[in-house]
């Protein structure tokens, strides 16, 4: 019995040209970012719980707020919804408010 023909084919992923560019968020390449320092603890602190607006996230953060009230009652947990579009980095007013009045923020959730 004759052997089946062997075929030479090309990969559909081809010669991909790739850059591992993580983005610069509008900054010049090589610029520096500094993460905000962490808190010593949360007691007596104002923590913003920011709902992205994705379905269910508000209800989830309601439950997180209830948990904080029960387990860390001195935390002032402020529930807010992200202003602007749910999928875009277009919020300014709320971030300014958190910087002025809050000490920490939790942003969530998607899914």
């Amino acid at each position: 019995m004759a052997k089946p023909n062997r075929v030479e084919v090309l990969s559909p992923e081809g010669c991909r040209t790739v850059v591992a560019d993580e983005g610069t968020a509008g900054r010049e390449p090589g610029s520096l970012w500094t993460m905000a320092p962490r808190l010593d603890d949360l007691r007596g602190k104002t923590v913003y719980l920011v709902d992205t607006g994705f379905g269910g996230s508000g209800k989830f953060l309601d439950e997180m707020q209830a948990w904080l009230a029960e387990h860390l009652p001195t935390v002032v947990a402020v529930r807010r919804r992200k202003t602007g579009h749910v999928f875009r980095d277009d919020t300014k007013d709320l971030w300014a408010e958190i910087k002025e009045r809050g000490q920490a923020a939790v942003l969530g959730v998607a899914g």
Binding site: R16, V19, P29
Partner: peptide, 9 residues
């Protein structure tokens, strides 16, 4: 941040 140059696979 540093942009990584294009590289060809």
């Amino acid at each position: 941040h540093a942009r990584v140059p294009w590289s060809r696979l």
